[in-house]
Design a protein around this nucleic acid. Sequence first.
RNA 1: GCCUCCGUAGCUCAGGGGUAGAGCGCUCCCUUGGUAAGGGCGAGGUCAUGAGUUCAAAUCUCAUCGGAGGCUCCA
Length: 923
Amino acid sequence: MSDKYQPHAIEVKWQREWEATELYRSKVDWSKPKHYALTMLPYPSGDLHIGHWFAMTPSDARARWMRMKGYNVLFPMGFDAFGLPAEQAAISNNIHPWKWTYANIERMREQLRSMGAMFDWEREAISCTPEYYKWSEWFFKKFYEHGLAYRGSALVNWSETLQTVLANEQVIDGKDERMGQPVVHKMMEQWFFAITRYADELLNFKPLDWPESIKIMQTNWIGRSEGARATFRTEVGGHPIEIYTTRPDTLWGATFMVLAPEHDLVEKITTEERRPAVRAYVERTALESEIERMVEDREKTGVFTGAFAINPVNDERIPIWIADYVMITYGTGAIMAVPAHDQRDFEFARAQGLPVRVVIQPVDAAEALDGDTMSAAYDGPGLMVNSDAMDGSESTWDKGRKNPAINRVIDWLEATGKGEEAVNYRLRDWLISRQRYWGSPIPMIFDGDAVIPVDDEQLPVELPEDVDFMPTGRSPLTYHEPFYKVDEKRRRETDTLDTFMCSSWYQLRYLSPECESAPFDAEEAAYWLPVDVYTGGAEHAVMHLLYTRFFTKALRDIGLFDDAIEAMRRNGRDPAGAFDEPMTVLRNQGQVLGGERQGDFVLCGGRQVGGRLLAERVEVVEWNQVPPGFAGVFGELAHRTENVLHVDMAGITQFVDVQPDAEIIIPDIAGENNVNQLRHHLDIQRMSKSKGNVVNPDELVAEYGADAMRCYLMFNFDWQKGGPWNENNIKGPQGWLGDVWEIAAAGAPSAPGDPSAERDIERKLHQTIAVINRGLEEFSFNTAIAEQMKFKNALKAALRAGGIGAEVWHSVMNQAIRLLAPFAPHIAEELWAMLGWEYSVHRQPWPEYDAEKAREEQVDLVVMINGKPRETISVAVDIAQERARELALASGAAQRFLDGKAPRRTIFIPGRNGTDPKVNIVV
RNA sequence: GCCUCCGUAGCUCAGGGGUAGAGCGCUCCCUUGGUAAGGGCGAGGUCAUGAGUUCAAAUCUCAUCGGAGGCUCCA
């Protein structure tokens, strides 16, 4: 028996043993309750980073805990393997995406194994294999057959850098989320999924236990608003211009209309006289990138089309303008402009000298609003004015029908046929075609104008391997004739599917990755679905997490879960609601950030010119070691750009220009030093290679062992928040595991038991179980581990104090190791074996919490005077209220403060869940 | 600008009307045949600030300040 904890000696050994004995194979067993724990699958970038460990190992601990609690747990793993990086590697390193991806997967599988997680590798799914994407293609076909996939022309986000279109969700601040390069709008014919049809159902989060922030983000993203649609007509030609507004109560205040520059009607209605100006404006807008259009406080620009429209509510003639503040992608791409009550319209009206007419007058304002003098739009409550029959209607802050004025106007619009109630969404349909090679082919064939799906028997349409990667960024499929040419007439679709489509259903493929007759086995789906707990990063809030919800609902409506529903019934389980949502519970982990780094402390000598020092000499010294009489600049190096140092000198930033021939002295770095070697201060921020603050999990495992790593990650952060990396803190969990090892290795004490000491450790054990249970339940891994550490201390103290008999010690150790198993699976397994218990600790039941055993017998009764604690009296835990009051009043503190007088009142607070009982005496 | 979350010990975080807590770190002491270590004792906090509610506020309410994330010409 080894008396020292040596992680490396045991970890690989147990990982092999677990695999050899199929410890983590999960099979359908209708006699047991199921638990499908899922953690987001990685992209095979080639290296597992600390973020993967942080996301996956706590999830693993929780899955293990559920298993010990008696659930049949499925905890699978796979790879989201299509995507741009593979293609970029192909272009720049001349390596085929297949090779690159598979090599990375091989490597990452090994890295994942070193976590000691309970992944069931028999269920691994990889999205870029033909066995997998056959079904991605098949789903596409099903969607197409059911009208959920369609080809449409739309203004799309086009990335010149990536040579592909992107979904709205993939464009951030006008740049692509991957490379951060500008995205422009372009009219293109593309494939879409009709996600907007599910907008309302996607807004229903009632069945979901998801973080509030994600629900809010999705709600905002879907952006439902209520209002009305109305049709204006052009004065000449009578072209209808449909508008959407959330403020139909201000229809009478429309003094002009604005169309988005891309609007279809612009060409038709523009007068000959205005055409040159309008064309110039439209062209200018098209060239502008999204970023330029989004600059804040941008001055409103636009041009008059020369055309007029008739306002249907009052037959008024108003000018039609075009302006880039109206977006073609929102609503109908055309607005009625009500400058008096909409700030944007107001700014535009003032900039262009257009009239402003008040139609909502606030009731109790000191002065009535006047369109000619007001300095900002008024969007508050009031009474409708200048609105014919609607005058006097009360408009409130409420939106939609809840607002009496809006309600009345909508009724009137509908009665007169001038408009109708309408709901609008910010959400657009999901653009799913990508002009890339490394993705699932879209199983469609063009035959002239006709579009024909590929026969099921011919699926999958396989990606050809013998393609040439050109540095143009164009997809190789577009010039690979054997692929696209079906025959003289017919041509295959060369666009591929957005990888988010592949990851929208991977939780289903895990159920039966080998299944050849269907995307998933109905029996497996009936047993395992839905996912009970899903863990992963919050960065997927509005992409993956919205798409996969849509996907599940679409599959349900197409009827693809019908067999599973039938199987569920057959096995006596109620299928109600089981296939409405993919994941019942969602929790997001935070991010592990780079650690903070102190800048060098520097002494800079040279001559002072203006506000800066031209340094001839810079020396790195010990913190605050400034020679007496030193005349230059000294302090922490806060920042450096090229040769300019920002030195923090007692809180004031001093600028130091290091001269080209200056002498740089850095004692830690041998040889001649240069300015680039100076270490400047680094704030806590994301880990990235360029910042040089990335940590490598493989090296850490080699140094500390997987168990210590797992425990450090769980202990040192609030999991749902994340935080800065601090390697120094690994010592805590490492020392704890070492202590546990020693305690276990020490063997049972031979002394006879003292019932009181044994009762104490037993009580402590059960109190610990309660806290760990709660910690795991709530993803509060840090508190669970802190409690284990405390228990270790108690165990150690008890052993030193003596009085624990062999029988109790064995029972306590047996349970303590089981408590440790989910967190540190290797050491737990080793100690379990070392103490002679049967393989495996991971097949043991979780220790049962016994409230009776956790109960304290004696507690301190706190005597408070006017709410301030003054004295404690040791009493029985179940002390009666009357007795407590008596004891409190008799206490020295009470006597002193009361000084013979009667108390004004006394308040008894019983001790509940661990708190002491109290009596507050008000004097 | 709007929405959400968060400010508790040096650090990372629990608690959440009723005595201010944990781990790490730190001080001091012991060990010097576990030693690039081990053991023991201890110090550390106006719970961001201000007001209100209450017998009692770190906890509830409001305001202010500070931090993180998301949305943003959304008609």
